[in-house]
Design a protein around this nucleic acid. Structure first.
Lengths: 215, 215
DNA sequence: GTCTATAATTCGATAGAC
DNA sequence: GTCTATCGAATTATAGAC
């Protein structure tokens, strides 16, 4: 901890290079299929250097995942912080989330795989916790908007947040096939897609004159 | 083709038993990790009988997937066919879709895995085609509703349909962890969840007085 | 490189339904 | 008798061990 900024930041520092390399290697090959040696080679450093930065393969693996998730969490609040119209804020969140996933596609793939069938079973709660934290943050912002009347009082914020994440995850996973489907070509652009989703979510499908519905 | 109903339906007939067994075995173990022998054993028949029903392991695998998808496709139209309120129809679709996935969780897992990293790479288009067909059907129903003014004219039906599927897929995959999250316990019941999603999607998040928004 | 175990697929043959 | 489901044994293909 007592390093000076110079040491810490390091020009394209070893640590970050290591994390990137690990993300790439883990991403194809999975946890078990990736050797520290391979990661070290890719990062252009020796195995011992890897162990200087992280105490174990597990720790490195988790650091890769936590890094991307927390990184997004840090920026998340900004998307909502301003006093703009909620729909605008939501649109920005959605676009930025998609961009973030695109930028970190390897880590995202890692996370998704880890959730489907965990390589580190007993670490799952930890990862879920990380993701939940960001989720809770979005919920919180929605609820704040609801309090101030910028979102309808009866809206279910948890569900709304979930729809946001779910839709983005889906888009991320299937953007490839999706763009081939008739009617969705227009949506090939993530930004356009994000806007379209928010349009539906914010304005709803109901005709403009109608309101409540009974089941 | 010229079999009588008796022959075809067969009391818990071998064919269906085979498909069920195949779904179970393929579901854990994946395509490569599952042997015809294991499937035959599970279905209580000999290997040769398997090949009597299906020309190859591949064909069996695909039949399992196609079966579940087409089964849902057949019932899909009914969910929309009536003249009830769109929100009601949407709610039913959402609930039935979740139920269908729950009933066929093994096949669903198979499909999701197949899409993530395909065991039968060159069959992917076929599977996508199957799924797309159901997707297109939902879009079609939404568009019909839009024509008749039961959904607002400016709504993007493709995106709305995608949100439906995406949300359900997400729920299916993460229902476990989800129910642990604070604020989502209430949503543990799939039916309640389905209704909540439709509430958001149909009515939107906008305050009841407000309408269009510029970005 | 050969040898071997494992898994896919093929080949008759049998038994029962209509 | 023909048709279909079923089986046991025989035949390939393949991947890994040595």
């Amino acid at each position: 901890m007592p390093q000076s900024a110079t040491t810490k930041e390091d020009t394209a520092g070893g640590r970050q290079r290591l994390l990137d390399a690990a993300a790439a290697v883990f991403s194809d090959g999975g946890y078990a299929g990736s050797s520290i040696a391979a990661i070290a080679r890719r990062a252009g450093m020796s195995k011992s250097t890897v162990f200087h930065h992280f105490p174990s393969k597990e720790a490195l693996y988790l650091a890769v995942i936590a890094g991307a998730v927390e990184d997004f969490g840090q920026r998340l609040d900004q998307f909502f912080s301003t006093s703009e119209h909620v729909a605008v804020a939501l649109g920005r969140f959605q676009r930025e989330h998609l961009r973030h996933m695109a930028r970190h596609r390897q880590v995202v793939r890692l996370i998704m795989r880890e959730i489907q069938d965990p390589a580190l079973e007993y670490k799952r709660p930890l990862i879920v916790e990380l993701l939940s934290s960001n989720f809770a943050r979005v919920v919180h912002h929605l609820e704040a908007a609801r309090e101030t009347g910028r979102i309808r009082k009866s809206a279910h914020c948890h569900v709304a947040a979930l729809v946001l994440f779910a839709t983005n995850a889906f888009f991320f996973q299937h953007a490839g096939e999706l763009s081939g489907l008739p009617g969705l070509e227009l949506i090939a652009d993530p930004d356009d897609f994000a806007d379209a989703v928010i349009d539906v979510l914010y304005r709803g499908l109901a005709p403009d004159n109608e309101h409540g519905v009974s089941r």
